[in-house]
Every structure is written in C-alpha cells, then in structure tokens.
Design a protein around this nucleic acid. Sequence first.
DNA 1: GCGTCTGCTGTTAGCGCTCACAGCCCGGGC
DNA 2: GCCCGGGCTGTGAGCGCTAACAGCAGACGC
Lengths: 340, 340
Amino acid sequence: MAEKPGRPATIFDVARLAGVSHQTVSRVLNDLPNVRASTKQRVELAIKQLRYVPSPAARALVTRRTRTIGAIATGGPDYGPSSTMLGFNEAARAQRYAVSMANVVESDLASVREAVELLLRQNVEALVLITERVGVLDAVLRIETGIPLVAVDPTGRAEHAVAIDQYQGARIAVEHLLSLGHRKILHLAGPLDSVDAGERARGWRDVMAASGLAAVEPLVGDWSPDSGFRAGETLSAADFSAVFVANDQMALGLMHSLRAHGRRVPDEVSLVGFDDIPEAAHLAPPLTTLRQDFATLGRQIMDSLAELLSGEAGDERAPIIPQLVVRASTGVPTVNRVSV
Amino acid sequence: MAEKPGRPATIFDVARLAGVSHQTVSRVLNDLPNVRASTKQRVELAIKQLRYVPSPAARALVTRRTRTIGAIATGGPDYGPSSTMLGFNEAARAQRYAVSMANVVESDLASVREAVELLLRQNVEALVLITERVGVLDAVLRIETGIPLVAVDPTGRAEHAVAIDQYQGARIAVEHLLSLGHRKILHLAGPLDSVDAGERARGWRDVMAASGLAAVEPLVGDWSPDSGFRAGETLSAADFSAVFVANDQMALGLMHSLRAHGRRVPDEVSLVGFDDIPEAAHLAPPLTTLRQDFATLGRQIMDSLAELLSGEAGDERAPIIPQLVVRASTGVPTVNRVSV
DNA sequence: GCGTCTGCTGTTAGCGCTCACAGCCCGGGC
DNA sequence: GCCCGGGCTGTGAGCGCTAACAGCAGACGC
C-alpha cells in the first residue's frame, strides 16, 4: 500500500523500498545470477507492493531490442490468412514477443510499402509477411529492411519461408478424381496474382499431362463464392465430368450455378475444393476438399523466426502437406456407371 | 551516401550533417514552429541522406507516450471478429497508431488476463477488446489498467463501447418471418456465454411475446455449422414453420440436417440467419440473413479511442443496425398456401 | 600472515530523444 | 541613443533502464 499516486514506480523506487541498489533490482528483473535468494525475495516483494512494471522504452533504448515482431497481412478476413495469423500470434506470445499488426486490405504496393515503413519505424526486430499476392511478396522481398523476414511462400522466392505445399495438394486432388475414373477434369483457378493459385494450377496441369490428358485453359476466379458462381455460368454445356476448384468458397458458388442449371453433384459433375473451411462439411452435397493446417503454419512462422533471431542453425522446414477429405461431392463419373 | 555502416544514425548525426543543433532537428521531426524554411530543408535533406529513423524507444521514454494500442480478440478466425479487427487496424494505422495484437484462441480467463498484462507491459496507451464472451468482457472490465478501454459490447456493460445492435437485428429477423405469416418460429441460439447470442435471443423472445406467440425454449449451438446440424437432428418431427438461426454457419448446418430429413427450405421450413457471410448468397437455397457492418464497427472503435485519448467530448455512438437481406430461404408458410 | 578467487552488491556512464530555458539577432518604438 | 520583443537557435538536464566495471566481503590455499 506504500503507493505514490503520482506516477508509475521506477526501478529506483523498488530499489529504495527493498534497500538495495537499482542494479540489483535490474538483476532480479532479468533473472541474472549472483543475487542472494533472500535479496531476490525482498526485491520481488517490493516490486509487487509498488506494482512496478519495467519500462519497455527504457529497456529498448539501451538494449536496442524491442522484442516486437511486425506482422503484415494482406486481403480480407479470409479463413486461411486469419487462421495463420492467429497461430503465429499465439506462438509469438508464448515466447513473450509482442506482435505489431499491419493488415492491408487494399493491397496495392504503395500501401504495403507504407505498412512496412510504419513497422520499421517501430523498430520491430523482424517481419512476418502473410500474403498470397505475388506482387506484394516480391515488393516486400525487395525492400532493404535490415531485419529478418519470414514469409508464407510455397514458391521458394523468399529466403526464409514456411509453406503449405499447394502444388502437392493440387496433385492429390486431381489424382483423387483420376482414381474415380474422371478424365475430363476442369480447373477453376484462383486469381492470377496469387502464388497459391499458381501452385495449385501447376499441380493440376502436371498431373493431367502425366496422365496424357488435355488440360484446357483453366477458368479464373477471385476466391469468392460469387466468382465461382460466375465461372459456372460460363460453363453451361461444356463437356466435363469433374472440376478441381482452387478453394472451397468458389466451389460453393460453382455448386450453386450447377444446381441452377440442373447439373447434379456428384452424379453428373464431381467437385473437389481446397481449404476445408468449416462450412465445407455441410454444403449440398458436402464438399470433398483438401484440409490445410494453418495453425501449424502460423506456429512454424514463429519457430523459424526464433531461429533467425537467436542465430541458431535453423534446419529447413518441410512444407506442410494438405490432407484429402473425401465427402459427397466426388463420385464415379456417369459414363463409367452407364457402361456397366 | 555519407553513411556510417556502424549503426543507425541518431539525431546528433543529422544535426552535425545539417550544421544545426539536435534540438532543431527535433523541432523539424515534430513539425514545431520557429524553424526557418531553409534550415528545415537542410535538416530534411540530412535525414534522407543518413536514412535517419527516430528511435521510438527514446521518444517514448521521455514523452511517456508509445502511440501503441493493445488489441485483444478472443476465439477463432470467424468472419465477424476478423473483419472488425481489420477495420480497426486500418483505422489505427491511418492515425499513425501502432497496434499490438493479442489473440487468445482458448479464451479462458487466465489466458486473457495474461494477454492484458503482456499488453500493459508494453505500455500501450489504450486497450481494445473484441470478444463476445460475457466472462471475458466482465473479467477485462474489472481489471484496473489505468488506461482507456473500448470494447465491442451491445449490452452496455462497458463504459466505452461500440456495437452492432444485435437485439434490433433479431427483431427485424423475426418480424420478417411474422410478416410472411409464420407463427411457429423457433430460435437456434448461439452459445450461452455470448453477449451477441443473448441479445439476439432476447430480440426473438420480445417480438414473439409482443405478438402473443409462444416462444419455446431456444435450441443452443456454438456458432459452428456442425452444431447447427446437430440441432437439426433433435428437431426431427417438431412442429414449426420457421427458424430464426443466430448465425449463418449454424443455419447452414441446420439446412443440411433438414435436407437430410427431407424437409424442404423454404417450402416447409423458412430460415433466417445472421451475419451475411460471403457464402450465404450461394447456399441451397440462398440464405435470408442480417448483414452486419463490421468494417464500420472497427472504424468506430478507433474513432471512440481517438476521442478518449485526446480527451475530447466524444458524443455517444449509436449502435449500427443490421440490414435484412432477403434471399430464398424464407417464404410463405405451407399451411397458409394450402388453405387457399 | 598474505594473496587470490568467488559471490554478491554498488557506482557510473550512457542509450536517443524531448522539455525547459537561455541565448542571439534584428526590427521597431521612444 | 536606448530598450524591448519576437523569431530562431542552442544548451543542459533527465526520462528509466542496462552494461561495464569497481568494490567488498568471506573462503581458501599456502
């Protein structure tokens, strides 16, 4: 209760109350050796009594370390990036790092650059970049920040990257369709400037080519259900038995369009999505898709960062492989069934 | 190019290069008056040449202002909270405030308290709380932080709150069903510890009571599509013609269950959701729901905070009213149609 | 006995800024 | 001539901490 109402206690106030020098208090604060147990106790008591909180500013000023990480994310509140950010944030907090967030919705390059600068002005010790946009990724990689950067990047552009193996996920999706007997497999891709979309399209193309199948130019959406619906509208009478859709939301929109045109899923058209959003299991029909472990991805970001900041070895982290979740939107193609 | 590779430039380096005192540099940095235009120019040139960035730590040490806001969010990557956080983050950045994020997934009280303390240790100037959990809200409100707190809170618990009017939204939803002729209207509520869920249930109950209709005990879910599905399974043969579902995801799960039991929407059962998630327009059938303007909510948080921090008057902010979006999941009840 | 080492504690000097205040110069009033 | 005031600039102190080093015991070896 010996509280001065004036202003927050400093290390000197604690020292006086505990009857030691401020340096001894500092030693207790930083858990340094060479402090007698009884002294330590007295100091800790004084700290509690005065409700002393060390000043991060003073500390940062002398140590030149802010223990803060700047996290940049682009785009809206989508399931994937949000989950990744959450996972990272929790991991960072567990290691007592503060996270300064800069979420750029309109991810034009100027805004992104500005966000980076704002973070640098805060003297963050490292940067995390969660974006799927090629342009943003390349732009941030080009900036000379002088601090470590870890990016979510399945393409290997970034020096320090973590990733979910989008390419492999796409292969698994298409191979699933192939194994059911599908041969005419379309692809509804994500936006052209998305690294994830690019990798998924590449996976689809490669599997098709390896199977000697023609891969017609993929349709392109923007991840939104609306764009999936619109893509479906252009498809009307096209000849295909399955579509590998680059994400669940577009698959939902496409489903909607197919339904509107009387093409039944999976009886006439099989659909595979990507992400396994919480909604996927309850669509009509429940969607076969690839689950991505975003939480682990987020944690990996922090792990990778911790290695960089401590200057440790840092073994390469293998990309996370998405997991196929088979539900009711995929089945044996009609032609096969008819030919029995 | 006159760059010392050693360590970052300080205000004294700039002063020397510009041929002025460090104080004049400080004046330029802070845009204070009484600096000759030509002097200012020289200083600015020196700043650019040395790539000088002022130290936030040194600044914070003497001004006692960190220009940082701590933002606490609880729960997973749901559409609503994520959007709100995004809106807030952009607004804060626009006012040159840094945002230190603490996202607590497992929102037990101990973790939340810990998150608050971590932020306080960073000397944030204010706190933002984005949670729907009664327990978390109450717990944080009780903590003596000594700094302003703005919470998302439609119940009026928090002294400084912004909100979407959940109660009013629920009334609009139920009134929509009433106007179509429904009388037996169930409610599938969100979790019991959710302020939003409570307000929505209250709105439903009040409208039912005002219309002299019996409001049977609502079903309770946890916002997830899965819980909506499970709720549907318990409903099998119950007597009702419409359900007001407390969010879109549960509505989706419920839809799934109804479909599985051959009860058609909207022919036999009308459904109204809440949120207007991007998926809502493409469900089978497209979902009637209430749209919430989360982006504006996020901006309001920052506006409210700015007032508090500047000590301005700060007029009360009226809660945002959700907007009814009528789609195909609601229609005239069967009995009425049959009775023609 | 002395020197030395080890465990603990204190003293001093900054870290890079802003604040308060002390100048300086020049124009204008008397 | 003088003084006064306002625009501009510089000087010194200090924010609250850590790093480096200095000191001061007591234990121990010889």
